[in-house]
Design a protein around this nucleic acid. Structure first.
Lengths: 188, 188
DNA sequence: TACAGAGTTTACCGAACGGTACAGAAAGAG
DNA sequence: CTCTTTCTGTACCGTTCGGTAAACTCTGTA
């Protein structure tokens, strides 16, 4: 394991932030270079596939993070209620209480969705089904678990949109708290 | 009123569709030219301010449409319940049951939000307050009206994101129906 | 029919785009 | 020290970007 100045893995979170801030089309190679501190040579060394590979790597990392920190606990934890609570907390942290945009959601609305359709679809499908699984195991009726999980993912994404549109993070906080309460009631 | 081959007003809906499909950055002047059937000369004749003016005109038209078709009825209709029902129907039509993206929501997630922050903010703020007004007049408690209107706008935007991400319009239909039921219950 | 102004075509501009080529700097291995 | 591999800076490529300029063609009016 060669310890080098910059590892590819270290660059990906920086790339994620650039794409979040500028969108896919808006994140030009020169902007990416500035915000990562890497020249074109390094960028194309790590990502020979160019911008597409950079974005794909970011989506993969995001997917991995959610899988590990959120989906897996929801599906496998002994205490599904704790896992649901954990999800709420993790979501609040991850999206910085509404100050940070969901890159996958932004990609979904953009025309680049087609290029990364599989990753975008998987991210949301996994989230919905993992949450449904937790609700199910927590004693919720299967139909309710299914609809509630979908509504929860919808509320989180919608809250991110509205929060940013109104430039008001309290919108996200309120919505997440209301979602938390709704889930708690359903499995009481 | 000179009847000419193409009126500026006729171009705006076409522009809206281009921006919806490609996003602001993705909608290059040449793409806009193709999809509107207008050359650069005509486009810059109608919109001397370039792409920015085109997008601003689109946002203005969208804002005007929602004001006329949705916000005003919500605020002023004699029968607020009918206005709320009307809103649900209009939203379903406008977003083509989830097959069409909300341009304002997409702009909110994009970095171009800053450029059109005022229009984006107004669109959502008006929606939320108009719906709260209707709920209020329909007999809902002021606090509930306030939170329910916010949750409704969130649910619509979130459903558009998830619907498109999963490429499944039924997500939007389900969510909108659930929203309709929730609003009906609150003012029963 | 002649004029005026609205609308359009076309050629063109400098800047920025994504991407490539390649020489050279770092850094671990023998 | 030297070799090899990994990483990086820089110059450059063709293309496309948003935007401008000006000559042209319509079309309604008188």
């Amino acid at each position: 394991m060669a310890k080098t100045i910059a590892e590819r893995a270290d660059v990906i979170p920086l790339l994620a932030e650039v794409f979040r801030e500028h969108g896919f089309e808006g994140a030009s190679i020169s902007v990416i270079g500035e915000q990562t501190g890497l020249g074109k040579g390094s960028l194309y060394h790590f990502f020979p596939g160019g911008k597409d590979e950079m974005a794909a790597a970011v989506l993969t990392e995001i997917g991995g993070w959610f899988e590990e920190e959120i989906y897996k606990p929801l599906r496998e934890a002994d205490d599904p209620r704790a896992a649901i609570d954990g999800m709420i907390g993790a979501v609040d942290d991850y999206f910085r209480s509404g100050r940070r945009v969901c890159l996958v959601g932004a990609f979904a609305l953009d025309n680049v969705r087609d290029r990364f359709a599989a990753a975008v679809k998987a991210y949301f499908a996994e989230w919905r089904s993992a949450l449904a699984s937790a609700l199910d195991r927590a004693g919720s009726a299967p139909d309710l678990a299914r609809s509630l999980s979908e509504e929860t993912v919808i509320a989180i994404q919608g809250a991110l949109v509205l929060s940013r549109a109104l430039d008001d993070p309290t919108v996200f906080s309120r919505s997440l708290e209301s979602t938390r309460a709704k889930l708690a009631t359903a499995i009481a």
